[in-house]
Design a protein around this nucleic acid. Structure first.
Lengths: 115, 115
DNA sequence: TTGACATATTCCGATACAGGAATATGATGT
DNA sequence: ACATCATATTCCTGTATCGGAATATGTCAA
């Protein structure tokens, strides 16, 4: 088996730094034309179009034709799965961290004894 | 340029579903031996070891030798960057979503007029 | 030290990417 | 219909995976 496709998943789509930049730019609220993203990213137009195609495939952005331009907008709901997944672990680094680590280390010690 | 290395980034490391599973399993708190992960994931041992190597390189897990086994534990703090990044967009799908979308669509309309 | 167990590493093949260059498609105004 | 602007698609090359198979490394116990 080979590496998972970038379009297989929101996680895979967002693994690419450029695509995260695009998401950040679109998160301001106003849809942006491809040309505007090209400027902002300092990247060739075909490359930007390809990144947008990936994001569109996974549903993170949507397009709207306006004159000659195509305005890309963020679909924030599509980011929620990532948020939900990572949020599971939020408590692990906030406050209770120490107690949890202690418990883990104690368990490891117990196992060390048994062997 | 080719695709970013899986070890270049926590985002890239977590793009792989199996590695996310590993993180979920370790998040319970108790460190797990490679063999235990092999069972849980129903994946061959070398494959699991390779995934663990990736996670270790980016710092998401750490190892502790206990007898013949190597117990892997989660380093939750290393997940925080992902959390922080995605949290930026949290408000976009909670409640104020409608107002934001409206604003975006209005802006798009304004631009449509201008062209 | 030898053997058994647990894990890591190397080599392999198939797959898929990211960006560059060139080209194709699409929309608009004349 | 045509020229032009904006964007998408195709082809290419270099690179990096993922998992399987085989093998190497490391740890312990007798």
């Amino acid at each position: 088996m080979s590496r998972a496709s970038t379009t297989s998943d929101v996680f895979n789509a967002l693994a690419e730094p450029r695509r995260r930049e695009i998401v950040s730019l679109l998160a301001r609220g106003s849809p942006l034309a491809v040309g505007e993203l090209v400027e902002a990213l300092d990247l060739a137009q075909p490359a930007v179009s390809k990144h947008l195609a990936v994001l569109r495939t996974v549903g993170v952005v949507s397009v709207q034709q306006v004159g000659k331009s195509r305005l890309y907008a963020l679909n924030p709901e599509e980011l929620k799965p990532v948020h939900d997944w990572i949020k599971q672990f939020e408590q692990l680094w906030s406050g209770q961290l120490d107690r949890i680590k202690e418990r883990a280390e104690r368990k490891a010690q117990e196992r060390a004894q048994k062997n």
